[in-house]
Design a protein around this nucleic acid. Sequence first.
DNA 1: TGTACATCAGTGAACGCGCGTTCACTGATGTAC
DNA 2: TGTACATCAGTGAACGCGCGTTCACTGATGTAC
Lengths: 197, 197
Amino acid sequence: MVAQERQRREGDQLRHELLAAATALAVSPRPVVIPSLRAVARACGVSPTAVYRHFASQGALTRAVLTAELQAFERAVLTADDPGREPVERLRDLAHAYAVWGVGNPGLYQLLFESADQLEREWASVEPSAELVARTTELLEAHAAAGRPAAPGPVPAAEHLWTSLHGLVSLRIHKPAHPWVTDLAGSVDHLLRGFDA
Amino acid sequence: MVAQERQRREGDQLRHELLAAATALAVSPRPVVIPSLRAVARACGVSPTAVYRHFASQGALTRAVLTAELQAFERAVLTADDPGREPVERLRDLAHAYAVWGVGNPGLYQLLFESADQLEREWASVEPSAELVARTTELLEAHAAAGRPAAPGPVPAAEHLWTSLHGLVSLRIHKPAHPWVTDLAGSVDHLLRGFDA
DNA sequence: TGTACATCAGTGAACGCGCGTTCACTGATGTAC
DNA sequence: TGTACATCAGTGAACGCGCGTTCACTGATGTAC
């Protein structure tokens, strides 16, 4: 049996090891904090156990919230689209609605789109529905047909649009203290100008 | 004294109340999970208390990690910039380095740029350093001077660049399952084409 | 070279906390007679 | 209309967990003599 051999490092060694270990632990994607089941029960003035009458687990409750909110998001965006208008304007309306919903529901936006492997990795692939994607691609095609080349085709263009909108929303959410020189609507318009190239 | 008055709702009422409460709790920005002090100690094969010899609290440890990593990020990006090259290419190098670092260190990127009010709101304003911003703005100006109008001026353009790069990195991190049609480098290039307008 | 001792990095037990989940229960409601 | 009863939504105590932090300690190292 080996003696206890209490380790003893020199000076700052453990400090560096701790920093290295903490960094290593923080490198891989981090989950976002979910409201606790007890907090939800508390908010309803009900005992924690009462939740189990309606949801099998905390995960089921959270999943129900996210499913509903993903639909709410979709609805908010699709509702902004008036098929009677010009493609350019419809695209603009969709983009604005996306940004407004995201900035207006920061926590939910985070849970939907910035939560890498939350909830058994099921939500790692949450994304705008096929309908929304189809609608957007279609508008981008119309846009291109109207004389604008849209260089690499509508699918990469849609991807680029999603990415840019996401960046807009995400940074506004997380850097509220930043002295933004352009307001949200202005940024969306600026971004869309890229599609008129 | 009022009798206990145990509440009893009809059918799905509490279910709806729970969903509403959970949604309400999830609307505001959510913190990102930080590696626990005990986990860090464990990773170093050391007792939790040993950490306190080197850091005053878990917050101090995390702050030290984030400060160091913010510098590492800056270094990675600035190092990619070769002042001997053309402005367009330098801009491209910076942008690529940003994206590569972010995608390569997803958890750290999250903690730096997607952590709204972590750590006593101190990090809510973490952002690329003045030096990096100055460098970028300068390159965008040179870019504009070289014949490209850069419509709204270099500062909004830098903001737009940051936002777009962030969107790129963030979605790649959080939607790894998405069937991306463009690879990371291609997306960065696509994005930069917008600045040639 | 050998011994006594001060230093101080790391230990281990303990604390109070909020968490998700379980269990046996209770008591208001609505129905059957 | 009045009473007995089954239903079942919500309760309250308890569990084991990992957490951040505290406290008095211990024992290896390096120095002074």
